[in-house]
């Protein structure tokens, strides 16, 4: 993507992109989207589209991130006059604005108490409940954030975003088992999400980097992720990494005594199929790297850093042989 876009912001926003995004503020703020005419005429002469408000919201976040608080205030006022101050989403956005302006942890605690008050009036406001968790995370109280999130997912077990966040928090504290459980909940809600499969595989891989059952599960999930997306760089990268680890482990265990794997129900894969998977991943990674270097900058959907990592993995392999 050559130009940062406010309507569909990129999945990763480094500071430079954030600056580019927030520099669009004067342009967006220069023309009012709503008409100032009285009621029936305002419907006819309104210039707003659904995209207008998505752009305003993204611009608000970009402005807050780059410290352009004056523009942020203006955008927030526009959104408030359009949707009302009691709108669920508006309460959350207002909260984000206050959080950004909080100078120390004490002020943040005050905002936190404000969220509690809102939740006492309306406990079903999930945007604010999520903001509460975000504040706890920002204060460094990860354990409290996890507790708050477990209550949240208990009340709303189909919220994939909350499960994913809970998994991330558990993973940060090193609780791999819980993190994997939460990601499996995400998979129950979105069984076709290739990135969720890759994430489960990553967690399995990180939880135990040299045990056959964990690596087997990681291999299975990486294989599923590339089954769901036939050009998924991360999936092929993981597939190659895991199979490279599994091949020596498997050949060792098969040459030795045949160990009973009754205690865990994960049957290890056949050595031959792992080798085949590794070959497939190597071929596909090579294709992706070649395709990336042949395409013009900004034309490819792959991330530069990811392609670089894939190239390094392939080079490592070439040197070993």
């Amino acid at each position: 993507m050559a130009h940062p876009n406010l309507l569909t912001p990129p999945t990763r926003i480094p500071p430079k992109t954030a600056l580019h995004l927030s520099q669009k503020a004067p342009l967006v703020l220069s023309s009012a989207p709503t008409s100032s005419l009285p009621w029936p005429l305002s419907l006819l002469f309104s210039r707003e589209t659904p995209e207008t408000w998505a752009i305003h919201e993204n611009l608000l976040l970009a402005a807050l991130r780059t410290g352009d608080d004056a523009s942020a205030r203006q955008i927030l006022d526009r959104l408030t006059t359009r949707f009302g101050a009691n709108n669920e989403r508006m309460i959350a956005l207002q909260g984000i604005y206050e959080e950004a302006l909080a100078r120390d942890d004490k002020e943040l605690e005050k905002i936190f108490n404000g969220y509690e008050k809102v939740l006492k009036q309306d406990p079903t406001n999930f945007s604010v409940r999520k903001r509460r968790v975000a504040v706890l995370k920002s204060l460094g109280r990860t354990a409290d954030a996890i507790t708050a999130l477990t209550v949240l997912v208990e009340n709303s077990p189909t919220d994939a975003e909350a499960w994913a966040e809970l998994s991330e928090l558990y993973a940060r504290t090193g609780a791999w088992g819980q993190a994997i459980f939460c990601m499996e909940e995400v998979l129950l809600i979105m069984p076709n999400a290739w990135s969720a499969h890759a994430q489960v595989a990553t967690l399995h891989y990180l939880s135990a980097t040299s045990s056959i059952p964990a690596l087997t599960l990681a291999l299975r999930h990486f294989a599923r992720s590339v089954e769901l997306n036939d050009s998924y760089l991360r999936g092929y990268y993981g597939l190659k990494l895991v199979s490279k680890k599994l091949i020596p482990l498997l050949s060792e265990s098969s040459s030795g005594s045949k160990r009973a794997t009754d205690e865990d129900d994960v049957a290890p894969p056949k050595l031959q199929s792992v080798k085949k998977l590794e070959e497939l991943a190597t071929v596909k990674l090579g294709d992706i790297v070649r395709q990336y270097s042949a395409s013009k900058p900004g034309q490819s959907g792959y991330d530069e850093a990811e392609v670089k990592a894939a190239r390094e993995l392939l080079d490592q392999d070439g040197r070993a042989r």
């Binding site: 807050l64 984000i96 959080e99 943040l108 920002s138 975003e161 909350a162």
Partner: peptide
């Protein structure tokens, strides 16, 4: 930038 609901504005700032 995923999980917008849990966006940590202070860390990004």
């Amino acid at each position: 930038e995923g999980r917008r609901g849990f966006w940590d504005v202070r860390a990004k700032r």
